[in-house]
Structure formats: C-alpha cells, structure tokens
C-alpha cells in the first residue's frame, strides 16, 4: 500500500515536472512542418512529440479508446461533428483566443463547428486526380477522363482504396449530390465503377507519388498538395479541376478530452493562428490555410502553384459527413465492385 502511494507520488512529481514543457501532437502522416515545430519549441521551450495516423477513422478509434494522451489532433471537417457528438473534444472557445481575428471569413464559424467552440482551421485543399500529360494530351478537367478513360490511359489508372472519395466523385460526375441515399443513384455509381474497373491498374491510396513519377500509373486520384510534389518531380504531371465539381476538404485543430497539457495545446493553437507561422506549414505541405494575411509569407512556389487555384467557375463541393444509410450503400457498392 505504501509502495503504491509512493509510486503514485513519484508519478505525479514526474508528470507535473514534465507537464510544463510537453506537447503531444497526433497528426496525419507527412503533414506537419518540422520547421514549424522547431520554431514553436524555440519560442516556448515546450518539447513536442509527434505521432501520425493514416485516416480519420484511425483517429476516431484511438480517441474512442480513451487514454491516448494526445494534446492536439487534426480531424477533417466532415468528422468534426462526429467527434463532438461522441464527446471526444474539449471546448477551446477559439473566439477568446489570441489571433482568432486572423481566421479568414470562410473559415470563421464554419458549418461543422458553428461557433468555433472546438476547432480552428489547419489546412484545406481539394481531392481530384493527377494526369501524366505526356501520355494523354487531351482535356483533363473532367471526370470523363477518370471514369471513361481515353485509349491512352486505359490500364494506367490508379484509384483510392477507400470508397468515400471514389463514390463521391462518381456521384458528382453523374450529376448527383455527395453522400447519396438513393438506391437508383448508387446503382448507377456501381455500374459506372464496374465499367471503369477493367481500366484500373490499382486501388491504393498509398505510394501515389511513386506510381506517378515512375510511370506505373498515368492517372491517379490525388490531393492537390501531393500533386504539387508530383509536378516538382515531373512537370508533365498535372492536377485536374473537373468542371463537374471539385471535392474540397478542410482539416482542423482540436484538443481531445483527457489532454494532459491543455495549456500548451492552447499555446500551440495561438501560435498557428499567426499568419507567419501557418505559412511555414503551408509551404511545407503544399496546402492552403484559413488564416488571412499568410499569403505574403508563402514562398514563390506556393504562391504560383496552379494546383491551389482552380479555374474560375469550377464548383467546389465540400465533402460531407454521410448518413448511416449513405455509408451502407457506399459499402455495398464497394464490396460488390471488389468482390
């Protein structure tokens, strides 16, 4: 018994001694600028430990399990309501934070967190596909190229391995809304995807850059930030802005329930609300941010990247949190497609 008390006491001393100076960040893979972290550490004296995850669902499972010990997490906008409903985030009341006024209009009080009680914006971008224009010289700004590929691209197509983005893009191409709950619409989606399947080389969301740059795939579903890197390696790799509508997403910073270093998390959030800091992040990852005034801190490459500026008139479609029914239909399409 005494031993236990002693151990607890020691544990408390140890953890409080460390608590002044620690911050545990859990973010998407390859998505945090090392320079940003170094600057934060230098300015605050806080030691940052990074771990990474591969999907919102991994993050969800991890947080649902309770004791994970993270102070900062970065969920996508369509998952924020889920995390909030499941009571996995603590309130940060961003409106009271220093730098809140820096948040650009479109990202202040967004639909997924209407009073910025839980989140502030981190990065936003789009999802479409990258085409090797050496292989195919025609019009790439349409989903036609992806789903009913021309001769040159057949058998050279790489798709994501998760249903949601694939199905959403098919729905947009067919002229329907994302997260469809209509069986007829979803049957059409399945038919379209089955028709496309013989031309698909691989369904995989990992190693996209490698397949594009090595010539293993001439067209690949992709995010705009990664497409910048692809183009840097090979100028022929161009990012498509399908005229039917481009899927858009926004990732957000939140503090999970049970965070051990809440104050440090707040310090970090206030830190990245500063334009000069979030610009470091954007320069690294290749995605836009929701902080006004950061443009002047962006490097030349980012400022001129075509991947970040869709042609005028291209509709931007925010992906949504699909209902249970819609998710079920998506899964049915997916397992039937890949059975």
């Amino acid at each position: 018994m005494k031993l236990a008390t002693l151990a607890t006491g020691l544990g408390l001393v140890a953890s409080s001694a460390l608590a002044d100076g620690e911050l545990y960040i859990y973010n998407w893979t390859d998505y945090t600028s090392p320079e940003l972290i170094e600057k934060f550490e230098a300015e605050t004296g806080i030691t940052v430990t990074m771990d990474t995850y591969d999907s919102n669902d991994t993050l969800l499972a991890k947080l649902k399990s309770g004791a994970s010990g993270y102070d900062i997490v970065v969920p996508s906008h369509n998952y924020v309501p889920i995390f909030v409903a499941e009571e996995l985030f603590q309130k940060i009341n961003a409106q009271d934070l220093e730098g809140y006024s820096n948040i650009a209009d479109g990202f202040r009080n967004p639909p997924w967190d209407s009073a910025n009680e839980y989140t502030v914006p981190w990065q936003w971008g789009s999802t479409s596909f990258t085409v090797n224009t050496d292989v195919f010289g025609g019009d790439i700004d349409t989903y036609e190229t992806l789903f009913r590929p021309p001769e040159e691209l057949r058998g050279q197509i790489g798709m994501f391995k998760a249903p949601s983005d694939v199905v959403d893009m098919a729905l947009i191409y067919l002229g329907y809304g994302v997260c469809s709950e209509s069986k007829d619409e979803m049957r059409e989606v399945l038919e379209l995807l089955e028709e496309q399947k013989p031309h698909v080389k691989v369904y995989n969301s990992d190693g996209i850059l490698e397949r594009l740059t090595s010539g293993d795939a001439a067209l690949h579903q992709n995010w705009n930030g990664y497409s910048i890197r692809a183009r840097t390696a090979d100028p022929a790799l161009k990012y498509a802005f399908p005229k039917e509508g481009v899927l858009t997403w926004a990732d957000n910073i939140a503090v999970p329930v049970g965070a051990q270093n809440y104050d440090n998390a707040i310090k970090f959030i206030e830190f990245i609300l500063q334009p000069e800091n979030i610009a470091i992040q954007s320069n690294f990852a290749g995605y836009s941010n929701g902080i006004s005034g950061s443009a002047e801190f962006l490097n030349e490459e980012m400022a001129t990247a075509p991947e970040l500026s869709p042609p005028d008139g291209t509709p931007m479609v925010f992906s949504e949190t699909c209902s249970e029914n819609a998710t079920e239909l998506q899964n049915k399409v997916w397992t039937t497609l890949l059975q």
């Binding site: 669902d57 249903p163 949601s164 369904y203 995989n204 998710t327 397992t335 059975q339």
Partner: peptide
C-alpha cells in the same frame, strides 16, 4: 493490397474495412 493492387478484396482487407471506413 501492395502486390494485388487491391482489385479483388481479401478477408483481411474486408475486416479492416469494417473497422475503419465502413464503421
């Protein structure tokens, strides 16, 4: 997934799908 290209699901991927995106 890496060598088969994910074109035909196998049990492992199917199970993993249920605990991730399919929820």
């Amino acid at each position: 997934e890496l060598l088969g290209g994910g074109k035909n699901l196998m049990l492992g991927s199917l199970v993993q799908l249920q605990f991730s995106t399919s929820r």
